[in-house]
Design a protein around this nucleic acid. Structure first.
Lengths: 214, 214
DNA sequence: ATCTATATTTCGAGG
DNA sequence: CCTCGAAGTATAGAT
């Protein structure tokens, strides 16, 4: 980790330039190179491994396999430290779309009156539909599950509905999400798609209230 | 900047946990809090400002306005340093979609035979179309510009075509991009949309070969 | 303040 | 290795 007054030039997929300023240069064990200012959560510039660092007296050049280059002109080094961090067990996540899908597969009754699961990950030739259900009248329903329901989700479900209707006949669509963008709700209404807001914590709670018999 | 053996718990939009390991904790001047391991370009966990840091003896708690929390259990501090970086002029970029749009607005003839520009950022009630052109026969053409042409781009252009056709009558569609995803090409073909691959550097070169008169 | 569209997105899974 | 979809996406621009 180096604190230095520097200017940076990037030439790769695009071209970018950072005028002279004091910044934090971070070189990770895996070769990742990061340039941070003291504002913002993401680096001003960076290079992902595999990449090589050529450390000259005043100019550092980071090059990756694709020929992209980061040229750092170092004007003044204020600090230069290094640490062995050792391996990291990594992040464990809970609450992502996959888990929401699993819960809704088991509790699809929350999606509509008398809903029952026919199949999870129902495959079509344009991709898998999250859930294929039947409603109280026995009619097929396609369910698309998102953490956040956006306009793209409606488009995606619309494609599935068109595709599947050629096989299963008339099919309804349900978009299930924890939150919805207004545009998504509007477009869904236009397309005759029902939006169902679901509560991850509540679903998780209900599951634990219905223990298995074993 | 603190190097510490720590474990971290995140409770917010989802729940996540980081088991004990040595990591870099970064606190920026604007309040940004970052937790980095020595691999990977993005932080293991983070909190974006505005957020408050409550620094207890062994436990640090970062809370943001939405009530999301990052709880860091600090087991051992190996290093604790701070620097004043001062203001940063920020990054100047060249080669992003906006500039591609500007170049294509001036050189729309590369998009098709006899193309001429009618309007850039042609506004519809569902959003702006990048370019409205006329082809060699005088028929209207909508052009959507992307750095990477993906399936969503085709959907977007399709929406515009449907919308605009009610006003301008029959309209053709062109998706212009530097690269295309195969799915996007396929869907575009289905929808009768033409995909045109463009070269940013070449466009830029051509522009400089046509200097202004002043 | 909220929402929309972009991104050198990054990351992981699957073919 | 490429392709595709998700992300606590982040971020900038517009409403």
């Amino acid at each position: 980790m180096v604190i230095a007054r520097c200017s940076v030039e990037y030439k790769g997929r695009l071209a970018a330039y950072l005028p002279e300023a004091v910044r934090l240069l971070m070189i990770k064990a895996d070769g990742t190179f990061l340039i941070h200012s003291d504002v913002g959560s993401k680096p001003l510039n960076w290079m992902t491994p595999p990449c090589s660092l050529l450390e000259g007296p005043d100019v550092w050049t980071v090059t990756n396999k694709g020929g992209e280059q980061l040229v750092i002109t170092v004007l003044e080094v204020l600090s230069d430290t290094g640490f062995e961090l050792g391996p990291d067990p990594g992040l464990m996540k809970d609450g992502v779309e996959k888990q929401l899908q699993a819960l809704l597969a088991e509790q699809c009754h929350v999606l509509g009156d008398g809903f029952s699961l026919v199949q999870r990950e129902y495959f079509t030739d344009i991709g898998p539909v999250d859930l294929l259900c039947k409603d109280g009248t026995g009619a097929h329903v396609l369910v698309e599950i998102k953490r956040v329901g956006e306009i793209d989700s409606v488009e995606q479900l619309t494609r599935y509905l068109q595709r599947v209707s050629t096989v299963l006949g008339d099919v309804q669509g349900v978009l299930a999400a924890q939150t919805f963008k207004p545009q998504a709700k509007t477009l869904a209404a236009d397309r005759g798609i029902t939006c169902v807001q679901v509560d991850y914590e509540a679903l998780k709670g209900m599951e634990s209230n219905v223990p298995t018999l074993f």
